[in-house]
């Protein structure tokens, strides 16, 4: 049971990250029907920018996150102006290919600037409660209520369930930003304009909505959210030029799972992808063992080294299988509306 709750936490964190990225894919698709494959690279740039800032200037991480968000919003808008705007009326495939080009370009740009070697945020640049502890020293718990104890860098729910403050802040950030985005889209004027553009761009334009401005803002918001996710992943894992590709493709799959073009769908899809990946990888071996035991292959399972859990090596594949199954049953994704015009 402890394992289950710990995996649930892992899944929520990963899901939160996927959701933050997936929103960027889905918002842009909703408005200009473009799959912006360079979005993963914005996520990567966000991490690198924050990394560079905290390495060279004595500023706290949260300031770096804000700067990185602004920077990425700028890059997102610039990308739209330079690469996609000239192709607004061109066939959709042209813009798609351009997006791939931008993606590869940014990836290699990052490789040129920061090198191919992965980078890690050094500990002293992080807030105290994100930092590592010496494993040889018993962690001190400074607060203990109802068996939940708070240590220097994690909350310990019971013997074996830990929630690091870093992971907690990822979940909180994801929830807050998602909620904010939801409010923005449903309540504000710009949100209304966005929804109008998503329904029919030409009609919206005729009604006096400056569609190019709305599109630019959409890119900016999506990119800023991606940047936050990038920094958090950078702190939690590491930063490398390929991180945008790996996480980006998974997040894109999440957007498709939720029904691309639908913001709520992207949030739910991201969460589901994260949980599917973690639980799939966490329990596939138990599942295989269970099957082997029940069809009389228990000994075979022991002997043939299947007892080494290869399953978790394929965690990414597992989440894609989930996506494919959902798409087969509901081709429009969980929240997507069926529509005649798809790329």
């Amino acid at each position: 049971m402890e394992q289950f709750f710990q995996q649930l936490i892992n899944g929520l964190v990963l899901g939160g990250i996927y959701a933050l990225i997936a929103v960027g894919y889905t918002m842009v698709y909703g408005i200009i029907q473009l799959i912006n494959f360079a979005h993963g690279e914005i996520f990567m740039l966000g991490a690198y920018i924050a990394f560079t800032l905290v390495m060279f200037f004595p500023i706290p991480l949260w300031v770096a996150i804000l700067v990185s968000m602004l920077f990425c919003a700028g890059v997102g808008m610039l990308m739209d102006v330079v690469a996609y705007k000239p192709l607004r009326t061109a066939p959709r495939l042209s813009a798609l290919i351009t997006a791939i080009g931008v993606s590869i370009g940014l990836q290699n740009l990052a490789r040129m600037i920061w090198g191919a070697k992965p980078q890690t945020f050094s500990e002293e640049t992080l807030p105290k409660f994100f930092q590592q502890l010496n494993p040889l020293v018993e962690p001190t718990s400074f607060l203990n209520i109802f068996g939940v104890s708070f240590t220097e860098n994690a909350i310990q729910f019971s013997e074996g369930v830990f929630l690091a403050y870093l992971d907690l802040s990822i979940i909180i950030l994801a929830v807050v930003l998602m909620f904010g985005l939801n409010r923005l889209v449903t309540l504000t004027k710009i949100g209304k304009a966005m929804r109008a553009c998503a329904q029919n761009r030409v009609a919206a334009n005729l009604m006096g909505i400056k569609t190019n401005k709305v599109i630019a803002i959409t890119f900016a918001i999506g990119s800023a959210l991606g940047a936050v996710a990038g920094v958090m992943v950078g702190v939690r894992e590491n930063i490398n030029p390929l991180m945008g590709f790996h996480k980006g493709v998974a997040a894109f799959a999440a957007a498709v799972l939720g029904g691309i073009g639908n913001i709520t769908g992207a949030m739910v899809g991201g969460l589901l992808m994260g949980l599917a990946e973690v639980f799939g990888a966490g329990y596939i071996d138990t599942f295989i063992e269970f099957i082997c035991n029940n069809i009389g292959l228990g000994q075979f399972y022991e002997d043939e080294k299947i007892s080494h859990s290869y399953g978790s090596g394929y965690r990414v594949a597992i989440s894609y299988i989930v996506m494919i199954i959902v798409i087969l049953i509901r081709p429009t994704g969980l929240f997507g509306k069926s529509s005649a015009h798809r790329a």
Partner: peptide
Amino acid sequence: SVAYDRENTD
């Protein structure tokens, strides 16, 4: 004994 994939970071 558990496997991981080298592309992974989590």
